[in-house]
């Protein structure tokens, strides 16, 4: 025989009343009660699943407990890691020091010490589309911990006639160099029809390399000095310039403003204009 239900509910007036002006002060906010699992359903022997999270009680001492401090440290670390990953894979900003790219970037670096900010893209689309005319940043071949910014003048397979540099020095060109040298000068060929001498002033950019030059031909240390740069050294592609607050624009080509000596480039047949296959 089941127990009988109580006849009446307990009276409300029987509960102890709290006075308005109590001497104990304001009461703390009550923690919301966790609903007790109560189910005799055979499919849910442990009661219904609780999906709603119970909010933790408000902590009294805020950031002074270890849990909150650890959360702040974790968020800071994650932010730094996110910034590093963004710099590695997407975009970063840097200044252009020196006037080697003068009409285009940092034109008043020498006179007024004004430096341009550039936006460097490092995403996969920028990496795959390095072509003639692009301004790239790269690690210097002769200084492993420094980067430089120059313009890609020729890509692999192109014939370059530099206006200065090592290729115009007959002592270097006719000297005995390493077989398969990657300075683009070529080797004397005894079977050649025109003659076995290496042509002075002609460079064929090797595979996997690019030829970079600065826009300021008077003050630039570029491929005319250290030879072709391999694609693995390329760091990013400079796409936008920020000179003043209101001057944020794409990197153009302002070499025509200056009269000077320019390197002559004969595009090779390996790649056509606009179909960049170079990847670094």
């Amino acid at each position: 025989m089941p127990p009988k239900p109580p006849l009446r509910a307990a009276r409300v007036s029987s509960l102890p009343k709290i006075k308005a002006n109590s001497t104990r002060g304001p009461s703390k906010p009550a923690r919301p009660a966790i609903p007790k699992p109560s189910s005799a359903y055979p499919s849910e022997p442990h009661g219904p699943r609780i999906t709603q999270r119970v909010p933790p009680p408000p902590s009294r001492d805020g950031a002074h407990n270890f849990r909150t401090a650890g959360r702040y440290i974790g968020t800071g670390l994650l932010t730094i890691a996110l910034m590093i990953t963004t710099r590695d894979y997407f975009v970063s900003m840097d200044t252009v020091v020196g006037s080697s790219m003068a009409p285009t970037l940092s034109p008043f670096a020498h006179e007024r010490d004004e430096q341009d900010w550039i936006l460097i893209r490092r995403d996969i689309w920028a990496r795959q589309s390095v072509n003639r005319g692009d301004v790239v940043t790269f690690w210097k071949p002769h200084k492993p911990n420094e980067t430089s910014i120059k313009r890609v003048v020729a890509i692999a397979g192109d014939i370059v006639y530099p206006h200065r540099g090592y290729a115009l020095d007959p002592a270097i060109v006719h000297a005995e160099r390493l077989a398969g040298g990657w300075d683009g000068l070529g080797q004397p060929d005894p079977n050649a029809i025109g003659g076995e001498e290496v042509e002075v002033g002609k460079v064929v950019v090797p595979v996997g390399h690019v030829w970079v030059e600065g826009d300021n031909w008077r003050k630039s240390y570029d491929s005319c000095d250290f030879g072709p740069v391999c694609l693995g050294l390329l760091d990013g592609k400079a796409t936008w310039v920020w000179r003043d607050w209101l001057r944020f624009r794409e990197v153009g080509d302002e070499r025509k403003k200056v009269k000077g000596h320019w390197t002559r480039v004969v595009p090779g047949g390996a790649r056509r204009e606009g179909s960049g296959l170079a990847e670094f």
Binding site: W139, V207, C230
Partner: peptide, 21 residues
């Protein structure tokens, strides 16, 4: 990386100079 503290006799992993990637 970038040749820090590399000495003669160490084995290094480097990006290939001519084969990109």
């Amino acid at each position: 990386r970038r040749g820090r503290n590399i000495q003669v006799g160490d084995m290094v992993i480097f990006k290939h100079p001519t084969r990109s990637g």
